[in-house]
Simulated scan of single mutants.
Amino acid sequence: MRFDLPTHLRLRQGMPTVDLVVDAAPAAAWEVLTDLDAWPEWGPTVVGATLDGPGSLALGARGTVRTAVGIALPFEISEFVDGRSWAWRVGGVSATRHEVFPHDHGCVVSFGVPLWAPAYLGVMAIALGRVARMSARRDA
């Protein structure tokens, strides 16, 4: 089982991005990334999240994310390609993008941050390791 450090820093779709090869099926990683109950387990700055209504993560879905500093902020899913990627606006501001790509060794999970927040890539690198571990457990 691989739990490497992020393998690439790059600019993808106008966002500084960090990637990690994950030893799990793309579907397992996607499940982790879209399971709101799992967000606090992999997201260092998230302690909870809920959708405003029934259903699952989808384009236009709205909800509330509770941050590690105790602030609850509204969010809206601004991009969504099922099984592949999602991005959101938090508090009305463009935030992170989350992507999954098939790879010979499982998948690549990629997190992008806005141009004004490159320091947040360190937080995303921590999250990638957590996503890798959670994805491997779900894929077992």
Rank of each mutant, 00 (worst) to 15 (best):
M1W: 06
M1Y: 11
R2D: 12
D4Y: 05
L5W: 09
P6H: 03
P6L: 08
T7Q: 15
H8E: 15
H8G: 10
R10V: 09
L11Q: 11
R12W: 05
Q13N: 15
Q13W: 07
G14F: 00
M15W: 04
M15G: 01
M15Q: 15
M15T: 10
P16G: 03
T17G: 09
T17K: 05
T17A: 12
V18Y: 02
V18S: 13
D19G: 00
D23F: 04
A28Y: 01
A28C: 11
A28W: 00
W30E: 04
E31L: 10
V32A: 06
L33E: 01
D35W: 07
D35G: 06
L36N: 00
L36T: 05
L36I: 02
D37I: 02
A38W: 03
A38G: 05
P40W: 01
P40E: 02
P40D: 02
P40V: 00
E41T: 12
G43M: 00
P44M: 12
P44F: 05
T45F: 06
T45L: 13
V46S: 10
A49R: 00
A49P: 00
T50C: 06
T50Q: 14
L51W: 01
G55T: 05
G55Q: 08
L57T: 03
A58V: 02
L59N: 07
L59S: 13
G60S: 12
A61Y: 05
A61D: 12
R62S: 13
R62E: 15
G63V: 06
G63Y: 07
T64Y: 01
V65L: 13
R66T: 13
R66P: 03
R66H: 13
T67Y: 06
A68P: 04
A68S: 14
G70Q: 04
I71W: 11
A72L: 00
A72G: 10
A72C: 01
A72E: 14
P74K: 08
P74I: 01
F75N: 02
E76A: 10
S78P: 01
E79R: 14
E79W: 00
E79P: 01
F80Y: 15
F80E: 03
V81N: 05
V81F: 02
V81R: 12
D82C: 02
G83K: 06
R84Q: 13
R84A: 15
S85H: 05
W86E: 03
A87G: 15
R89F: 05
R89N: 14
V90A: 04
V90H: 00
G91V: 12
S94G: 08
A95E: 11
A95F: 06
A95D: 12
H98Y: 01
H98N: 04
E99C: 09
V100M: 02
P102K: 01
H103N: 13
H105C: 06
G106N: 07
C107Y: 04
V108E: 08
V108Y: 02
V109G: 04
S110W: 06
F111Q: 13
G112W: 03
V113H: 04
W116Y: 07
W116D: 13
A117S: 13
A119E: 14
Y120S: 13
Y120R: 14
L121K: 07
G122T: 10
V123W: 04
M124G: 08
A125M: 07
A125S: 15
A125C: 11
G129K: 03
G129E: 08
G129S: 07
V131Q: 04
M134V: 06
A136W: 08
R137I: 09
R138L: 15
R138Q: 10
D139G: 08
A140W: 04
A140D: 14
A140F: 05
